[in-house]
Simulated scan of single mutants.
Amino acid sequence: MPTAPTVPEPGSDHPPAASPPPRQRPRARVTRAMLRRAGLPFGSLLLSLAGWQVVAASGAWSETLVPPPAAVWDAFIDVSTAHDGVRGYNGTYLIEHLGISLRRIGIGAGIGIVAGLLFGLVMGTVGWMRSLFEPWITFLRTLPPLAYFSLLIVWLGINEEPKITLLAVAAFPPVAVSTTTAVTAVPQSLLEAARALGASRWDLVKDVIVPSALPETLTGIRLAVGVAYSSLVAAELVNGLPGIGGMVKDAANYNNTPVVIVGIAAIGLSGLVIDGLLLRLERAAVPWRGRA
Results as ranks from 00 to 15, higher is better:
6 T>M: 09
277 L>W: 01
123 M>A: 10
6 T>C: 04
100 I>H: 11
89 Y>Q: 06
229 Y>C: 00
258 P>T: 04
76 F>C: 09
207 D>G: 04
206 K>P: 00
180 T>S: 07
79 V>G: 04
176 A>C: 14
127 G>L: 13
169 V>C: 00
122 V>L: 15
105 I>S: 01
139 F>W: 13
225 V>Q: 03
286 V>C: 14
246 G>M: 11
181 T>N: 10
86 V>L: 14
215 P>N: 08
185 A>G: 11
33 A>F: 04
82 A>R: 14
46 L>E: 00
199 A>Q: 08
188 Q>M: 12
52 W>D: 00
155 W>R: 07
21 P>Q: 10
80 S>E: 02
233 V>E: 02
71 A>V: 05
55 V>R: 01
204 L>E: 15
120 G>W: 02
284 A>V: 12
9 E>I: 02
35 L>G: 05
172 F>Q: 03
38 A>R: 00
228 A>L: 04
222 R>D: 01
174 P>Q: 07
210 V>P: 01
160 E>T: 13
205 V>W: 13
288 W>V: 12
177 V>C: 02
83 H>W: 14
166 L>M: 13
193 A>N: 12
185 A>R: 09
220 G>I: 04
137 I>D: 04
222 R>Y: 02
127 G>E: 14
76 F>V: 00
35 L>N: 00
3 T>R: 13
65 L>G: 04
274 I>C: 00
76 F>E: 02
292 A>H: 15
188 Q>W: 09
89 Y>G: 13
77 I>E: 11
20 P>E: 10
71 A>T: 13
75 A>L: 05
222 R>Q: 11
13 D>F: 11
